[in-house]
Computed example of a mutant assay.
Amino acid sequence: MLELIDFRKSYGSDFHLEIGDLNLEAGIHLILGENGSGKSTLLKAVAGIHPFEGEIVLSGVSISKDPLEYRKLIGFAEAEPLFPDFLSLEDLIQVVVKAKSSSPTQVEDLKETLKIGDFSKQAIGSYSSGMLKKSALLLAFIGDPKLIILDEAFTTLDVGTQQSLTRLIERKSKEGTSFLLTSHQNEPITAFDFSSTISLNQGRIIEHEGA
């Protein structure tokens, strides 16, 4: 499903992330590590946001050879999402729906699942941290991504929305979508049967359990 080949990422001389080669089969994968271990950097590189050295291939599509097609296969919600204050979630949805060839029905289903309601019509500058998180999550699921990347997926969400998100992840996984997750919250992730767990420390994999 996801293949990293000779992967390296550096920030000046202070931080180096070196994964080497990594192959992940379809499923739900958990990435663990302390702050500064490289989790978010890795996820942003796989999402096509950060440049890096090496190669990443998802479902046979290379990010370096076919970057537009690659990014269509990815959904991404970062740990602390930031959007322009003057836009609304509806504005963002229109852009992503067009890029991902999604349907209005899918968007309405996601709004209901994540309990967004009419907040989507308001300016993002008025959103709470929880609503910002829900917005990022909704955008990540739009279209038919082969891989959805959720960095600290459950932070700032109320318990009810955490449970709804858990069910949504499980349902999409059964339909063939794979996930990369990070979380500092133990309780929400106990529901998942992870295909593998990857532990990072100081920019290197120190343990990889599972497929």
Score class of each variant (00 low, 15 high):
residue 192 F to L: 01
residue 195 S to D: 15
residue 31 I to F: 14
residue 21 D to V: 07
residue 169 I to N: 00
residue 203 G to Q: 05
residue 69 E to I: 09
residue 49 I to T: 13
residue 166 T to W: 13
residue 124 I to N: 04
residue 24 L to D: 13
residue 8 R to Y: 14
residue 81 P to L: 14
residue 153 A to V: 02
residue 12 G to I: 02
residue 200 L to V: 05
residue 125 G to Q: 03
residue 134 K to E: 08
residue 17 L to G: 01
residue 191 A to P: 12
residue 161 T to F: 06
residue 183 S to H: 04
residue 207 E to Q: 15
residue 125 G to P: 03
residue 154 F to T: 04
residue 58 L to A: 10
residue 175 E to Q: 14
residue 115 K to M: 09
residue 169 I to G: 00
residue 24 L to A: 05
residue 131 M to F: 11
residue 137 L to I: 10
residue 142 I to R: 00
residue 149 I to R: 00
residue 202 Q to R: 05
residue 80 E to H: 14
residue 37 S to M: 02
residue 120 S to W: 00
residue 46 V to N: 11
residue 7 F to C: 09
residue 208 H to Q: 04
residue 89 L to E: 01
residue 104 P to V: 04
residue 199 S to M: 11
residue 211 A to N: 15
residue 22 L to P: 04
residue 158 D to V: 06
residue 115 K to N: 08
residue 97 V to G: 02
residue 54 G to Y: 04
residue 59 S to H: 10
residue 201 N to K: 15
residue 133 K to D: 05
residue 154 F to S: 12
residue 197 T to E: 15
residue 176 G to L: 02
residue 119 F to E: 08
residue 146 K to M: 12
residue 101 S to K: 06
residue 17 L to P: 01
residue 122 Q to Y: 07
residue 155 T to F: 00
residue 133 K to P: 05
residue 33 G to H: 07
residue 6 D to W: 08
residue 190 T to C: 15
residue 100 K to M: 11
residue 165 L to K: 14
residue 85 D to W: 15
residue 32 L to C: 08
residue 151 D to H: 05
residue 176 G to M: 09
residue 128 S to K: 12
residue 129 S to P: 12
residue 161 T to V: 07
residue 68 L to I: 12
residue 69 E to Q: 14
residue 66 D to E: 14
residue 99 A to F: 04
residue 123 A to E: 13
residue 85 D to N: 05
residue 8 R to K: 13
residue 74 I to Q: 08
residue 152 E to V: 09
residue 93 I to D: 08
residue 99 A to L: 13
residue 105 T to A: 06
residue 13 S to Q: 12
residue 155 T to C: 12
residue 195 S to T: 13
residue 136 A to I: 02
residue 66 D to Q: 10
residue 13 S to A: 11
residue 174 K to G: 03
residue 24 L to S: 06
residue 112 E to Y: 10
residue 100 K to Y: 01
residue 187 E to A: 15
residue 188 P to F: 08
residue 185 Q to W: 03
residue 56 I to W: 02
residue 189 I to D: 10
residue 195 S to G: 12
residue 126 S to E: 03
residue 109 D to K: 09
residue 147 L to H: 09
residue 31 I to M: 06
residue 98 K to T: 14
residue 12 G to V: 03
residue 41 T to F: 01
residue 109 D to P: 10
residue 49 I to W: 05
residue 79 A to D: 15
residue 104 P to C: 01
residue 46 V to Y: 04
residue 144 D to E: 15
residue 118 D to L: 12
residue 157 L to S: 09
residue 153 A to Y: 06
residue 25 E to A: 15
residue 198 I to S: 00
residue 50 H to G: 10
residue 153 A to K: 05
residue 140 A to H: 04
